[in-house]
């Protein structure tokens, strides 16, 4: 998907009166701005599942995917570490049943990595589009170890905001894990800011978690709120 198609996707969602894009749509928008996201296939029909499993490869993750669902984990719509076809088919049926007929199942590569970060975009009433960086996953809300920068970000801003969080050492080589690719992380932050500056219709973005797969950051879950 290119930027024009991404804009079209957002426009369509707005016309339909939706407040959010689905995870699958959000990631396509992010990818159009060059932000690394998980490889994934949206499967709405059981017949298409086998092809998707082939394309992504085991082990993989399956998630319920529809425009208006947030908190997929709480709603029991996420299955991780699926290792075979039978398991995948069972998971597909369970998730589809939980979705009440809306949306489909996202078949997604499983990113191995113990370091989880969060990135996002908010629109401050005074300063406009601001980009967030911080510790991700379950720590986001517990520790609130975050920093912001007003968009557009310069590379210097992106590098500095990563250093601003208390837990910034998570980006260094630690416990046998390599140092994070901060160049790519900085690019991601800059590009989130660009989306904020370029697309007025995007109100908020969450990339949570962004997992460090070795050194390489990948957005594993994403939310885009439109206005």
């Amino acid at each position: 998907m290119n930027k024009d198609q991404a804009l079209q996707l957002i426009e369509t969602a707005r016309k339909e009166g939706r407040k959010t894009l689905s995870e699958y749509e959000a990631k396509q928008v992010l990818a159009a701005w060059g932000i690394p996201v998980t490889r994934e296939v949206l499967v709405e029909d059981r017949a298409a599942l086998a092809g998707a499993l082939n394309a992504i490869g085991f082990p993989l993750v399956m998630k319920g995917c529809a425009a208006e669902i947030a908190h997929k984990t709480e709603k029991n719509l996420v299955r991780v570490d699926i290792r075979g076809e039978a398991e995948a088919v069972a998971a597909f049926d369970e998730i589809m049943a939980g979705l009440d007929g809306k949306g489909g199942v996202l078949v997604q590569e499983m990113i191995g990595g113990r370091r989880e970060l969060v990135m996002g975009l908010t629109r401050d009433p005074q300063f406009g589009a601001c980009v967030m960086f911080g510790l991700g996953g379950i720590f986001t809300e517990i520790l609130k170890d975050i920093s912001f920068r007003k968009a557009p970000l310069e590379r210097h801003d992106a590098m500095e905001m990563m250093g601003d969080i208390k837990g910034h050492k998570i980006l260094e080589a630690v416990r046998g894990m390599p140092a994070a690719d901060t160049g790519t992380l900085a690019d991601m932050l800059i590009r989130i800011g660009q989306i904020g500056v370029e697309i007025e219709a995007v109100a908020e973005i969450d990339l949570n978690p962004v997992i460090l797969d070795g050194a390489r950051p990948v957005a594993v879950d994403a939310l885009i709120v439109v206005q």
């Binding site: 996002g120 912001f148 969450d206």
Partner: peptide, 23 residues
């Protein structure tokens, strides 16, 4: 504010001002 994302819910004026002034 009524917001849906973690990012917006954590970006109150305290956090934003602190970051803006530092930036």
């Amino acid at each position: 504010r009524a917001v849906q994302s973690h990012t917006a819910s954590m970006g109150g004026s305290r956090e934003i001002w602190q970051s803006i002034l530092r930036q």
